[in-house]
Design a protein around this nucleic acid. Structure first.
Lengths: 335, 335
DNA sequence: GACGTCTCTGTTAACGCTAACAAGAATCGG
DNA sequence: CCGATTCTTGTTAGCGTTAACAGAGACGTC
């Protein structure tokens, strides 16, 4: 096993040139005679030669690999992001190496980044939606291209983020516009920036409408916690509109309301966040906010490549606006 | 930017030894005096030295990276598998490089594998649940450690797979045991082995009970297709029990049944497959079959590492049994 | 026709590490 | 206390690639 494939010299010998000429053909160097180029290409094809990335990385000091640090790649958001990132990176000729971590604390993040650095990745994308991750990033070596996704807006690190505030504002406005007097909110965990942003947007929209925000119901992204909050909401007759921080929470809320005989949207309207593919098939189909994960992935990769090429650090920042997707879970209050 | 970190020689100089001794310390070679080992470790720590994976890969011919080829890492199954794989690999000191592909055809798979090979990955895990992927794998270079997950059982390739047949049989049996005369099935796409296995298991269980299988309703994993099938099922008064090939299909079916006023489980019982985290919060909570993704990941990695270490190819094979999770979507027929 | 200036190709030297060998110091049996 | 083993360390030679330089023709210009 492990019969090593042909190396550049083998190709060179077959094509009757020096290995350096082969290298030039491979890297698209201009000054190679067309005829030579073809001979080399033929030799490459004949031998099934594949350049050795390790050797290249060694001499150039950079591999064609981008490291991604993420927490829970099972959740819909992170998973979509990762997939989109991988697609985009592949188009640019980069491979993606995942370093998922159990916790987004300083130690875990640093360890994951270390692992990536020791493989000499060209750059790192950190999907770091929580507070504690921020600190970890500040202590990192300054000389590696790095982009944060959904990270801490208050830190001077290149950042691409979904506009949580705008999305939450749109969701809340949508409910207010339908005629609801106020909107309740089932939030995500407080140490997630996504949660905080969505809470802010919800609060802003209410205040802008002259409404005093009702108490927050804290959840943890899971349908289970949505269900628990839903049980409380169902028992409060004055509740007519709920905005949940994601679709899974909404699912839990829907189920609780259903159990208590409160109909959606007749008695209570519900809006989620994320637009998971199943949201259209909840009972009833869920009105929700759809972040554009592809756009986020594209933006972060672009930002990262810019850093890799220019060598500039810079604290760039880009925000992707999400879109409201109206379905049947919202209706005017029955008065 | 890209200020190259210290190399092994720098550590050696600081510790007053040769670079080879540093290498020995790093690789846990036994014959190093304790005192020397400590001096070297101190120097490593002081300089913040990080071994260069590219150099190591170049000289050993193998990197500490495992390549994973998968299709749609947004789906719950593949995403969970990927995450579990990454966790397990990290524990063994391996990084995971993802090469997701849009289609699982010969060209795409080969291209993804090529990319991994050119990075000299230590081994490759292919999550190749469809027919067309099988061919691609047979034409691959023989000298690379490779494991297939949920691949073609009829090909002589190392394979780890969830026991789809057993899972489907259990689901169907569960419905029959509850007293249903027969069980309908909403399947996944026919070119997925997962689908085929689940269809087989369903059919087997019915035949074993002396029941003639009713016509199959073909779906495509999505809630949307489940919804379409559900609309048909809802109109057929004789239908009292449905087994769907995954939970998303079940969600679509539930919604359709709900719209047609057919209650679950009073009028119709439903069983899904996958046990997505939200399944417990469907309306009603979904009885389903839970494959153990962690076990699959562990088994495949173990198999891969065995190949890497021994250099043996061999057509090993391992099957992971799924477990039925009973919830409220199943009840006896009202007769 | 001599002299710069391109264009194309080859030669040599790293990159940072491990493997193979060599050699000095320490230990041990008799 | 000597030769044989064992432990510990150092030296040297690559791994396969790119970068830097050098050289050989071809071409144009004065």
């Amino acid at each position: 096993m492990a019969v090593h494939g042909p190396a550049m010299t083998d190709v060179a010998r077959l094509a009757g040139v020096s290995h350096q000429t082969v290298s030039r053909v491979l890297n698209g160097h201009p000054n190679v005679r067309e005829q030579t180029r073809l001979r080399v290409r033929a030799a490459i094809a004949e031998l099934g030669y594949r350049p050795n990335g390790a050797a290249r990385a060694l001499v150039t000091g950079r591999s064609q690999v981008i490291g991604v640090v993420a927490q829970n790649t099972t959740l819909y958001g992170p998973a979509s992001l990762l997939a989109a990132l991988e697609q985009t990176a592949a188009e640019e000729g980069f491979a993606v190496s995942v370093g998922s971590v159990r916790n987004l604390d300083h130690r875990s993040i640093s360890a994951a980044v270390e692992r990536h650095l020791s493989h000499r990745v060209a750059g790192i994308v950190v999907i770091a939606p929580v507070e504690s991750a921020g600190e970890a990033l500040e202590r990192l070596p300054q000389d590696v291209p790095l982009v944060t996704v959904d990270g801490d807006p208050s830190r001077p690190v290149p950042l691409v983020t979904v506009d949580q505030v705008a999305g939450a504002r749109a969701a809340t406005r949508h409910l207010l516009d339908a005629g609801h007097r106020t909107v309740w909110h089932v939030s995500g965990p407080f140490d997630w920036f996504d949660s905080v942003g969505r809470i802010d947007g919800w609060r802003e929209a209410l205040l802008a409408a002259g409404v005093d925000p009702p108490p927050l119901m804290p959840g943890d992204w899971s349908a289970a916690s949505g269900y628990r909050c839903g049980q409380m909401l169902a028992r409060m007759p004055e509740v007519t509109a709920v905005f949940t921080a994601n679709d899974h929470l909404a699912l839990g809320v829907l189920r609780a309301l259903h159990e208590f005989g409160r109909r959606v949207p007749d008695d209570i309207s519900v809006v989620g966040f994320d637009d998971v593919p199943e949201a259209a098939y909840f009972i009833p189909p869920l009105t929700t906010v759809r972040p554009d994960f592809d756009a986020v992935a594209r933006a972060s990769l672009q930002m990262l490549l810019a850093q890799i090429e220019t060598g500039t650090g810079g604290a760039m920042r880009q925000t992707i606006a999400p879109a409201l997707v109206a379905r049947e879970s919202v209706a005017p209050p029955r008065r």
